[in-house]
């Protein structure tokens, strides 16, 4: 395995382990800062799972996702390791613990496994310098989304997470953006990708 692959894997495992440990902590903080995520699509796997922690009054959510692309979708099985951060500035509360957040913005960087994806033109070993300027293995992207959140009111969680969020996101990546910037006829929907997910955590 390549070093960069190892580093991402270790980071993902550490984060997941920390999140799991936090769930078992007998003396929890009222708003335990960790959450787990399950996502569909978004260019980050047929299904991606992972987790992260809340920062800045639960407005900022850095997280790690590990996505799976089966052979029926990708030709070959692939894993996608994604570092993602979402910022949700405005989450007005409704009744009974419900919140609706009309806008989230965020960014991500991910790495796709597979020997067909070289990290750089040079590491592939078959091209002259500068032959291809991008890395097929690494994508950088931006997203906007919306979400609804339910937060359990009171002390009795019955084993449930404190906060549960259902979100939808539209994202694009660097290569799709480059295509759009150089073509007037390429419409915005043509470069957008939908992702749907669920986040739960806190106690």
């Amino acid at each position: 395995m390549r070093p960069h692959f190892n580093a991402l894997l270790i980071l993902a495992l550490c984060l997941l382990a920390t999140a799991a440990q936090a769930q078992n902590d007998p003396t929890p903080d009222r708003h335990g800062p960790f959450f787990l995520t399950v996502q569909i699509g978004g260019g980050q796997g047929l299904v991606a799972v992972g987790g992260g922690f809340w920062l800045a009054d639960q407005k900022l959510e850095p997280e790690v996702l590990v996505g799976y692309v089966p052979p029926s979708v990708g030709g070959r099985a692939m894993a996608i390791f994604t570092l993602k951060t979402t910022y949700t500035p405005y989450s007005p509360s409704l009744q009974n613990g419900w919140q609706v957040s009309p806008v989230s913005i965020g960014g991500f960087v991910n790495y796709t496994t597979g020997e067909q994806f070289f990290l750089t033109n040079q590491s592939a070993g078959r091209y002259p310098k500068g032959y291809y300027w991008w890395s097929p293995a690494v994508r950088i992207g931006a997203l906007v989304g919306a979400r609804i959140t339910h937060e359990v009111v009171g002390n009795n969680l019955n084993g449930l997470p404190r906060r549960t969020t259902l979100y939808g996101e539209l994202s694009t990546n660097d290569l799709h953006l480059v295509s759009k910037f150089t073509n007037k006829s390429l419409s915005l929907p043509e470069i957008l990708t939908l992702g749907l997910g669920l986040k739960a955590g806190g106690r």
């Binding site: 260019g43 692309v69 990708g74 996608i80 994508r139 290569l175 929907p189 990708t193 939908l194």
Partner: peptide
């Protein structure tokens, strides 16, 4: 519907073959 239709909005990887 999204996966099967030509809307193509729901994408699992920019490298997918589907």
């Amino acid at each position: 519907m999204c996966a099967l239709s030509s809307c193509g909005l729901l994408e699992f990887s920019p490298n997918q073959t589907l």
